[in-house]
């Protein structure tokens, strides 16, 4: 199935940006006190993008024989993903105070950026590895 690798990679990257972009916008809306970020169509759109993202990610792992809990950079990506999801839940819904939601939103975006940099460099530290020596 390696024939489809470029297309699958493209779908994966597009879904990464769509997912992150949507989270950024919804998080910003929540910080401004708007109701629209939590409306059903947007939530379902988010679920759909994330399902596509996950599917493409699993396909790439299988195609390239690079697996979480076998290869360090993918392990870090999966663990950071869990952190990102938890922070995202608190940023959009579960955070009790406005400050808590804001803090979680900013942290989630930072974690998102770190995930992207880990993916770009194929290194557990992402772009940070340049400073870590």
């Amino acid at each position: 199935m390696i024939e489809f690798y470029p297309q699958i990679r493209l779908v994966h990257i597009a879904a990464v940006f769509a997912s992150g972009g949507l989270f950024f916008l919804r998080g910003a809306g929540v910080q401004l006190g708007a109701q629209w970020p939590m409306v059903a169509p947007l939530r379902y759109l988010s679920y759909t993008i994330d399902t596509v993202l996950l599917t493409a990610a699993l396909m790439l792992a299988s195609l390239l024989h690079q697996y979480p809990f076998v290869h360090a950079w993918l392990t870090v990506k999966v663990l950071l993903l869990v952190v990102y999801i938890v922070l995202g839940m608190f940023a959009l819904r579960r955070g009790r105070t406005r400050m808590a939601r804001l803090g979680c939103w900013v942290l989630a975006l930072l974690v998102y950026a770190l995930i992207v940099s880990v993916a770009r460099t194929h290194h557990p530290l992402g772009l940070l590895h340049r400073w870590a020596g």
């Binding site: 199935m1 399902t51 596509v52 996950l54 599917t55 699993l58 396909m59």
Partner: peptide, 10 residues
Amino acid sequence: VWMRVPGDVI
């Protein structure tokens, strides 16, 4: 076969 993933996840 991979297209099972979305349905199976849901």
